[in-house]
Every structure is written in C-alpha cells, then in structure tokens.
Nucleic acid binder design. Structure first.
Lengths: 337, 337
DNA sequence: ATTAGCACTCTCAGCCTAAGAGTGCTAATG
DNA sequence: CATTAGCACTCTTAGGCTGAGAGTGCTAAT
C-alpha cells in the first residue's frame, strides 16, 4: 500500500510527464504546493521507484512513469473523467451534420477522436455476427457479364462481377433475382445451401456466388480498419529517431496491429487500455492502445480506438473513446432498429 | 547545345546520384571509363553547373543534379525504357489472380507500383465523365427508413439512407423502383430533373434523392485517392530530418496533393512527370510526381502515379506507371465494353 | 584541348570542457 | 521518527576546437 502522499506525488509526476514529455524532478513536484520540501519528495520518489511505479532514464535525471505507474494511475488515481457536456454536444452535432451512412460515421468518428486526443485513431466498420441475406439484385453489364449485388440484413452492400456461362438478358436476370429473393431472403449461407430447389445452370451459378459471398463475409472477422491522424505521431518527441517511426508506420499500413488486438477487444465490454509492454507486438512497447467495442449486442459490432505513446492523455482518451463508442452504438441501433 | 561528352557526364552523374543519394565527384565519374582525366571532367562539370544542370551543396562537395538536370535526363538521356517482358507478365498475372472488381484493381495497382518503384503510390478510382443512371433499388429498413441504391452506368454503386415522409412498405418501394427504372434508366441528372411526370409525395422525395446523388457524383471531380507504400518514404535518407516528414505525411493524409495535381493530369494524355520545384505546393520542392491518366476516352478516367524524392528512379517509375495505366485501361474496357 | 599538381575550402567526426540539472546521502532539527 | 538543509557526486548537453578527408578550381605544362 502506498501512503496518500506517495499516491499524490505519483499522480503529479504522471500528469506532469504526460504534459511535457520530460522527466520530472523532485523540485517540480515540490512547487505544486505539497507543503513538504523537495528532499522529502526525493525520498518518496525513491520508494516509488523501488515499487516499480517510476523509473529513471539516468542517474541525474528526474523520474518518468513506468507501465505499472500508468496502470495504477488509470485504475486508482485518474478518477472517472467524463467528457464535458460541451464536447458531448459538439460531437453529437457533427454526427447529425453528416449523411446517415455507416461508412461516413466511422470516418467521422476517427477524425473526431484523432483530433481530440492528438493521436492516431483507428475504427473498423461494424460487422454482423451472422450475415443474412436481405435482398439480391442482378444487373446485366454485357451478354456474359453481370453485376451481383447483395444487400445484407444490416443494410450493408457486397458486390461481385460474374462471368456467366450462358448469355443472359436483363429480364432473365431480374426474374432470377426475384426467385432468389422470395426463396432466400432472411437466410444465412448454410440455410441457403441446404435448399432442395431445382435450378437452371445460370441460376445454379448465381446462387453459388451468393453463398460464397455470404461465407466470405462470415470468415473475414472484420473489415480493413480505417485510420486517421497519422500526422500526429510525427509531432511526438519520442519519435524524433525515425527508425522506430518506420516500424510504426509499417505496422499501421499493413494493419497487423488490429489483427492481433481485435479478437480481445471484441469479446470484452467497455473501454480497454493496453499500456506499453502489455501489448503483444514488441514494436508496441512504447505505445498505448485505448480501444472499445461498439455496436448492438448479438447483432453487429466494430471497434474504435486510439493509439499513441505511453504518455498519451489517458484522462482525455478514455472518456472520448467511451463516448464515441456509445454514440456509434446508438446510431447503429437507430438505423437497424 | 551540350557536347556529347558533357551529355554523357551528366547522365553518369544522374544515374550515380539516383543510386547512392550522395553528391558525385569528378573522380567517381572518371572511374566510369571515359578515357579522360578527372580534371577534364571537372571543367565540364563546371560548365554543366553554369548551364544549370547541376548544383553544388557546398564548395568542396561533388555535384548533384538540379531539376533542370533531371528534366533533360528524362527528355533526352534516359531513352524510352520499357518494362521487361518478365515484369509485364508478372503484373498481368497478378491482375488475373484478383476478383474482377474495380476497387480491387486500383488497390492492386497501387501495391505493385509502390513495391516496384519503392515509393508511395497513389491511385484514384475511375470516374465517369457523365454519370448516368442504370438501375435503382429500394430496400425497406424500417417503416420510415429506406436504403436507396443507385447503380450507375459503369457498374458503380452509390447508396443513401432515406428518412421517408410517409410510412412505406417494401412492396410499395419495389413498385416505385420499377417506375423509376423504366422511366429514367440511361439518363443523367439534368435529363431526369426535366421530366413532367406525376409523382406521389414519396415518389417525389425519392426521385429528388436520385437526382441529388447523381449531381454529387458529377460535382465531385474524383474519388478519394488510395495510397500505398508510405513506409518507403521513411527509408529515404533525405527524410531523416523529420519535420519535413511531418509535412509530407500530412500532405498525403489530407489528400491536398491530388487536388492540385489531378486537374492537369486528367486533361493530358501519357505519363506526366513533375519534378521538384515544378510542383505547385512548396512542400513538394523535394519531390517528383510521375503520374498518368487511365480509363476509356470520353467515358471514364482515373489517375495512377508514384511520388518520391526528386532522385526517384525515373527509368523504372515512368515505364511502370505507363504499363500499369495501360493495363488498367484494358481491364476497364473489357468490363464496360 | 587535356592534364598533373597543388593550394584552398568546407564538412565531419571526435574530443574536450564548462554549465546545469538532479540525485542520494548525511547530519541536524522539532 | 519524519523532515529538511546542505553538499558532493553523476550524468547530459551544448559549444568550441582540431585534424583528417574529400573535392574543387586554378595554373602551368604538354
């Protein structure tokens, strides 16, 4: 257990370090009006270091928080900050300014998050747990070429260009589409494939494509994430050495990061925080990820989060991610009922 | 006019500088087997500098090519390099491996270009000159909510969620869609808006949305470009100082670059090269852009290009951009007839 | 026209130093 | 016993200096 003063000192150091990025000296803490001298604080800081909450870049520098320090800060010291009502209002306003489309929303959410936290934001499109066919449309492009459009239950589109085995007119395609719609609307891929209807060659081919598209939607666990605010990362002093930078940019471009993170995020509720070395990827040792699931339980879900150096403003990032994930969830349930 | 030897010296210097990124000394050139001494070459280099083809970082360094030097190299010295047949085959093969969809193609083209030239590739989706309605689909989401799907002439989709003024069933929506399709298929926005048909309130509202969507497609001169290979830029030695880097990344993220470049690209044929200071944006002083239009003349067009430091491998970048733009054009005309 | 030779210029890495920041320890204090 | 003033010690950093090296431009000779 830490004494109250040590807790206080720790929180001052973390707040200060998050603000400046520079190691914090005992003098700096003393000037915050604790009523004790810098020597006393030095003793406390020494113990905080022994307990693993702080570390020293070198003997004659101040202290910086360790991963454990941040973790304690988030758990006990930070308090549960809420977004100001002004911010909440501003965000809601922006969402209502935008066309009512899921993709627009995700892009807007990323833009807001990245600009409010001054770091890289990352958002995936919401994905249904079990894709079901709502409607099929077939459009003739050429004699042997047709565009197959799948509308899924949650108003998501999939499209695919088909090379037909037999020449087919638009009328024929429309008839086929009607047949498929009346027979399969509301079903998932396995339900469709266990039908016992009689099909022509062309119909057979199209139904097969429908099933394939639905299956590919099932298998791919989430869409390519959308990323915004890469520029912020360049202003962080911790990345003035640019070989680290290269690794990070590559991480983002190849989206490996999300692949390792999303499985965890999608199974748990609430805002999750991964600090520095708690991340799997070793390139992520110097980063923290603050991320949350959003969506409608049991129906669709996506993830929204922000990534920055470990000294990211947790007390701003956490409530912002929380609020944005709530707003996205609300909007989705309005749209899908 | 330059003597033949001076031309040769210039081309050696440019090739060498593109390869190493280091100023090229008279000694280095002499060792390339010209049969004259370094002193002679120094004299020539001096003149080349006076004519503006070369410049010197400082008195006791070698020479580096100026923008004018690169320009001359591309125009006269480089020869018209073609992509090797092996490369051509490899590229075509990759395109046939991929699903027949325009978006896939653009992503693949960007990936190939960026990895072959080791720089940032940028591709826009092809955009029709005059969007025409091919087909409309209406899907009921809730009583007062419908998804409007526009299929444009070139098999491009646009979607929009409508809040209906009157409660409407799927049957009613389908009837409306049929009415719109038979009346307006093949027309552009202004032709649709000058109709004199009688509409119900709901029909009126939907037709208005269709017109709006078509118009927004007309006005927006091109889609958000797709970017690949950002990571390459970090390995360029000229960006070890990272304040320049920040400006560049920002340029890419906000896509301002394309906004200033595309109008020129889309009006001219063939591969275009913008070297350093020839670019409008001053951040681009240190960059060259090699870019080309692709598409079907008079119907659809997009752009594909690559961006790198002025010492980019022009003799690889130019033929690669050229070949990729041809392949994309071919694929599109196969798809659209 | 070409070239050997050489003085001159500029950069760069390495080394040193002094200033400054911050600590940890010791001894004194209420 | 917790606190604190005082101070020696450590480490970083910016600045100045230096010598080596690279490359040039000029001159005089061929």
């Amino acid at each position: 257990m830490l004494t109250q003063r040590k807790e206080y000192i720790l929180s001052i150091i973390i707040a200060e370090y998050i603000h400046t990025g520079l190691p914090v000296s005992s003098d700096t803490v003393a000037r915050k009006g604790l009523g004790v001298s810098s020597a006393t604080i030095r003793n406390d800081m020494n113990e905080l270091e022994e307990f693993g909450y702080l570390s020293q870049p070198h003997t004659s520098a101040g202290r910086i928080p360790s991963d454990k320090g941040y973790r304690h800060y988030i758990g006990s010291l930070m308090g549960d900050a809420r977004l100001s009502l002004a911010d909440q209002f501003m965000i809601r306003h922006q969402f209502h300014q935008v066309r009512r489309e899921v993709e627009q929303w995700t892009h807007l959410a990323a833009a807001i998050l990245s600009s409010m936290v001054h770091n890289v934001a990352i958002v995936t499109l919401p994905k249904p747990y079990e894709p079901r066919l709502k409607h099929v449309e077939l459009v003739s492009l050429q004699e042997f070429l047709a565009l197959l459009i799948l509308i899924l239950k949650e108003a998501r589109l999939k499209q695919h260009v088909l090379t037909l085995e037999n020449a087919t007119t638009q009328e024929e395609l429309s008839t086929i589409a009607q047949k498929i719609n009346s027979a399969f609307s509301g079903l998932n891929s396995s339900e469709i494939s266990t039908n016992d209807m009689q099909f022509s060659v062309t119909e057979e081919q199209i139904v097969k494509s429908v099933i394939q598209l639905l299956q590919s939607e099932e298998e791919e666990p989430y869409e390519d994430p959308y990323i915004d605010g890469l520029r912020h990362i360049l202003n962080q002093p911790e990345f003035s050495s640019n070989n680290k930078l290269a690794a990070v940019i590559e991480l983002f471009e190849q989206k490996r990061l999300l692949k390792s993170l999303l499985p965890q995020v999608l199974t748990e509720d609430g805002v999750q925080v991964f600090i520095g070395g708690e991340n799997e990827q070793d390139i992520m040792r110097d980063f923290s990820v603050i991320i949350s699931k959003y969506g409608i339980p049991g129906e669709v879900s996506g993830a929204i989060g922000v990534i920055g150096p470990t000294r990211i403003q947790y007390n701003r990032a956490i409530p912002t991610v929380y609020f944005l994930s709530s707003v996205m969830s609300e909007l989705l349930s309005e749209l899908y009922r």
